[in-house]
Design a protein around this nucleic acid. Sequence first.
DNA 1: CAAATTATTGCAAAGATTTGCAATAAGAAC
DNA 2: GTTCTTATTGCAAATCTTTGCAATAATTTG
Lengths: 145, 145
Amino acid sequence: MRKQDVIKQLQQVGYRMTSQRLALLDTIWNLEGHFTVEAVRGRLPQDASVDISTIYRTLELLCEFGVLYPLAGSVPTEYERGEVPHHHLVCRNCGAVRMVDEYHFDDLLHHLLEEHGFVAELTHFAIPGRCRECQDITPQGLAIE
Amino acid sequence: MRKQDVIKQLQQVGYRMTSQRLALLDTIWNLEGHFTVEAVRGRLPQDASVDISTIYRTLELLCEFGVLYPLAGSVPTEYERGEVPHHHLVCRNCGAVRMVDEYHFDDLLHHLLEEHGFVAELTHFAIPGRCRECQDITPQGLAIE
DNA sequence: CAAATTATTGCAAAGATTTGCAATAAGAAC
DNA sequence: GTTCTTATTGCAAATCTTTGCAATAATTTG
């Protein structure tokens, strides 16, 4: 999605285009990959001072519109722009993150829609579990048995 | 899972059974459905004073062991005991929560295991989206178009 | 373009959660 | 049962996030 389209969409629905929101959109569009609220703040042009609560509120707004996605469970929360739909496998033992293509979830989404009329918005999902290397290891790093 | 089994399992792996952990397990086993850290604190017997940071640490420990599951996205975090594996559909508009059976996810889990060697631990998952009633509504409650 | 309307911001305070560290106590070793 | 080892706790402080409210500024209206 292009930045201009986001601006247009927000305005059409009644949101106001303030200098803060424009500065934040600019900054976000210049960031690669994941980023935190603090990272956004650090990258804002020095002449644009935006309160941290405004950054939180704006990122949340963009999440509601599907422009951004929070990585579930990250603290501080990591956000990412929703360019290419994909999901993450997050190892609960070593923290390794691995990408998964979206199509794996197609069947599931169809089920949910047909059985519950529910439109799942899984554009960015973090799935907890164990990666190949951490299979038989407890949370403390002690091998079981 | 029975409380005694949890205790045994934790001990076997090297965790110590303190009075605080026993009191917390007791309390949790007496709670129904979802609960927060604060709720656990409120239900502790008055003679058992457990610091709030200890409660946080203990709930996290129980999550790592699959005894509890945090409901993704809830603030303050809601926890639930992992009795019957199921998942939640959470409407991002009205907040309605709906249960879904686990078997819907079986195919997905198999894919992840075969293609990535990843053992997903989806014993309790919150899936964001739109329920039937909130289909064409923006986050602010204004109908689109 | 000025006035009216109200979404948005900044600020400060509250709330939620995590973390470092010295004191305590569980379990192991003797 | 006493001593030793070290996981765990409580406390206080730090961090992360949310929220209420008066002041500000983006749109709408005239």
